[in-house]
Design a protein around this nucleic acid. Structure first.
Length: 108
DNA sequence: TTGTTGACTCTGA
DNA sequence: CTCAGAGCCAACA
């Protein structure tokens, strides 16, 4: 016992699930809330099981851009999903965190 | 247990 | 903001 890394993943997934539709968050934001570094959050997304119902697509890097996975295939799909959510992209395929960035502050 | 890798972030220029 | 270097944490062999 002593360790339960799975718990950490659950915390990350839970935080991501708290992000409302039409908003996005960054890895650093979740990493601080889950008590780990941004890399760990990205790792959790990489280990995210299929059909987990977790809107990982709403999680982007600090630049507001979608991080490309080793495959770089789902990335394009995610951009379409975010657009469907009502999020507008920049000319460089970047999201304006000033308007869509979720800070986990208005949870009440 | 050690070493490498990874969907990142921070600091400095 | 962008470029370059260093750091931190977790999983895998």
């Amino acid at each position: 016992m002593q360790k339960s890394s799975g718990s950490l993943y659950q915390s990350i997934y839970d935080l991501v699930c708290q992000v409302p539709v039409g908003y996005v968050t960054t890895y650093g934001r979740v990493s601080q809330l889950c008590g780990c570094t941004a890399r760990t959050v990205g790792f959790a997304m990489a280990a995210l099981p299929v059909g987990s119902q977790v809107p990982w697509q709403r999680v982007v890097n600090r630049l507001g851009k979608i991080s490309l996975r080793t495959d770089g295939e789902g990335n394009l799909l995610q951009r379409d999903i975010l657009e469907a959510e009502g999020i507008c992209f920049d000319a460089d395929q970047r999201i304006n965190l000033a308007n869509y960035g979720w800070d986990f502050a208005d949870l009440s």
